[in-house]
Design a protein around this nucleic acid. Structure first.
Length: 103
DNA sequence: CGAGTGACTGCCA
DNA sequence: TTGGCAGCCACTC
């Protein structure tokens, strides 16, 4: 096994799990919190391999863009009362989650 | 072991 | 403001 990878994934899942309802977080934010801002892509891969129980639908990219090929994600976010823009992207300024809020 | 892929980000035109 | 290109890391074939 590769503890390094597992640890990275574990931290990603931990952070995503702490995202409250109605809020979303970006891959870059997660990568930054872990201490690897350049591994933002790995966060996405972690989400792809994310086990059930992880609100991965609350994870979006820096532009507030949703996961390609996963229209259901928008439905989930709408159910969480996440604010969407006219272009279909999440309004990070309104629904963007900040780690400092749980500190 | 080498090449290709991806739920990304940042800079430049 | 919007769109395109390159850089980055880990995983899979």
């Amino acid at each position: 096994m590769k503890p390094e990878r597992e640890d990275f994934y574990a931290e990603v899942y931990s952070i995503v799990s702490e995202v409250p309802s109605g809020k979303v977080i970006t891959y870059g934010q997660i990568a930054l919190l872990i201490g690897r801002p350049q591994n933002s892509r790995l966060v996405g891969q972690a989400m792809a391999n994310a086990p059930s129980g992880i609100p991965c639908h609350r994870v979006v990219n820096s532009q507030g863009r949703l996961v390609p090929g996963w229209d259901e994600q928008r439905v989930q976010l709408e159910a969480e009362r996440v604010v969407f823009r006219k272009n279909g992207c999440v309004n990070l300024g309104k629904s963007g989650w900040k780690y400092a809020e749980i500190l």
